[in-house]
């Protein structure tokens, strides 16, 4: 007897990615560099977030050709992004044989009220969350993995830190609440009761939680790991830097050895120029991607 794509199996793949680095790539060449540098998975994109931010316009699911090219070039899991609420893009990614779908605020949302009902799609989903309520809503819809919604394409880690701290506070609040208080708490944070109850019993999120958005250096990756993340996504930080291969390897080693400052110093030497960052205060409210998601 074999049963495919149960929630345990979807969640299980995320468990296997723990302690690892997932890298944004736009073609086969970058995907191979990522795999050889020790990435646990790659995110196949048409444009990396820094370019989406710079160029503007509507950002959609990557072209089928780009995704296929990346799938064919590596043996590690391949992820791809669908627009928030765009369940047809998700169905197409499922059909393409993608290993994980990121329902992502980095793309232009397709629905201003609803996210995708993720239980019906065989492929597991990762969703961004700025706080515990948002994480619970996404898990309720079927997300098998959560990530912070740090401002993608800025090379500035402050928003990811903010989300992770807020997530930890939210989990602690649920953990330490009396069970009689859980329904009221669920109402307050606009979260499905069952997920809140699960967190109360487990003392942690029922799925893996990664850091994403603005991670540009080995120190950034280690910071997010010390704050309690299970692993990191690095987007523009690698292929917008001076020496992508060196930086990719350094971030991978830093993510494993996040508690070892000597190791962090060693891998941070001779890395070349990091990506040029953007101060969050310089962004208009309308330019903040983390606001996308309901």
């Amino acid at each position: 007897m074999k049963i495919e794509s149960t929630f345990k199996i979807k969640k299980g793949l995320a468990e296997m990615l723990k302690g690892g680095v997932i890298m944004d790539v736009v073609n086969a060449e970058q995907a191979v560099i990522a795999e050889k540098s020790g990435a646990v998975a790659v995110m196949a994109l048409e444009r990396i977030p820094a370019d989406i931010r710079a160029e503007g316009g509507v950002a959609r699911m990557s072209s089928v050709e780009t995704i296929q090219e990346v799938i064919d070039s590596v043996s590690i899991p391949v992820m791809a992004k669908a627009r928030i609420g765009h369940f047809v893009e998700a169905q197409m990614l499922e059909s393409l044989g993608i290993d994980f779908i990121d329902e992502s605020e980095v793309l232009t949302p397709a629905d201003d009220k609803n996210h995708i009902y993720k239980h019906d799609i065989k492929t597991p989903f990762v969703n961004g969350a700025t706080d515990i309520g948002e994480a619970c809503r996404r898990i309720g819809e079927g997300a098998a993995m959560i990530r912070t919604k740090g401002e993608a394409g800025t090379g500035n880690v402050i928003e990811a830190v903010k989300h992770m701290r807020s997530m930890t506070d939210g989990i602690n609040k649920i953990k330490t609440s009396d069970q009689n208080e859980l329904m009221s708490l669920a109402k307050e944070i606009r979260a499905p009761f069952d997920v809140v109850k699960d967190i109360h019993e487990l003392g942690k999120l029922p799925v893996v939680n990664f850091a994403a958005g603005g991670i540009a250096t080995p120190a950034d990756a280690a910071l997010m790991m010390q704050l309690g993340c299970d692993g990191v996504f690095v987007g523009s930080g690698i292929f917008k830097s001076g020496d992508p291969k060196e930086r990719a390897e350094a971030i991978v080693i830093a993510t494993t050895n996040y508690n070892d400052p000597e190791k962090l110093i060693e891998v941070s030497k001779n890395l070349g120029e990091p990506m040029v960052g953007i101060n969050i205060d310089d962004l208009d409210e309308a330019e903040k991607l983390a606001k996308r998601g309901w």
């Binding site: 495919e4 345990k8 793949l13 290993d99 492929t123």
Partner: peptide, 24 residues
């Protein structure tokens, strides 16, 4: 297979049967 073919399956482990996860 890839993730979409990953499954929980009934394994005979040393004479006992249990459902276990096969992930890629």
């Amino acid at each position: 297979g890839r993730q979409n073919q990953s499954f929980e399956g009934l394994v005979d482990l040393m004479g006992n049967k249990e459902m276990y996860c096969f992930i890629r």
